[in-house]
Amino acid sequence: MNDDMFARNVPGMTERLQGAVVAVAGCGGLGSNAAVALARAGVGTLILADYDTVEPSNLNRQFFFRGDLGRTKTRALAAHLRNINPDISLHLYQVRLTPDQVDPLLGRADLLIEAFDRAEEKQWLIETWCTLFPEKPVIAASGLAGVGGTGALRVQQSGALYICGDGVSDPETEGLCSARVALTANMQANIALALLCGKQHI
């Protein structure tokens, strides 16, 4: 099946990505959309972690469908990813991650996509990963609320830490909507793919 699937991929990319392992911490608006992009591109192994189940309020931005309501996000997302690429290797953790689980559950990944919702959790995850693995990339997101502001989305880099988003928009007042969340998730995925393919310009 895969022989045709990657026919239009960037030359030389498919082979490199097949051996790659990417961890996605959180399978909500950011994580579900980023995971889909990574799976479509041919990343061989994804580690998915989320404690939550799919609710109606997720459907305005997360890669889930009516039939997923009530299912765990990791299992629902795994089904969609396998429906895209049956050969993808998936490791699912239905847990609310804590700092002490980062190394045992996610540590074998080549890089981490930070896809949590709350800033407090983003902070400890970034701190934990950067302390455990100073050289391994972590691609986070901050400031993806609202609509419009397309040109304000950017990438801040500090060493192996990348932060996508506008850095300021607040979901409490601006809400979270399909396009801007998926844009940011795909920025994260695009950086991950570039790093895994050894591209200079992420």
Binding site: A119, I126, S142, L144, G167, V168, S169
Partner: peptide, 25 residues
Amino acid sequence: KKDRWPDAAVPEGADVQVLHLMSGG
């Protein structure tokens, strides 16, 4: 790490980066 901010000394000439984190995902 955050718990070290009160006593983490910053050397002269240091390059300090402060990155903001907003909720949303």
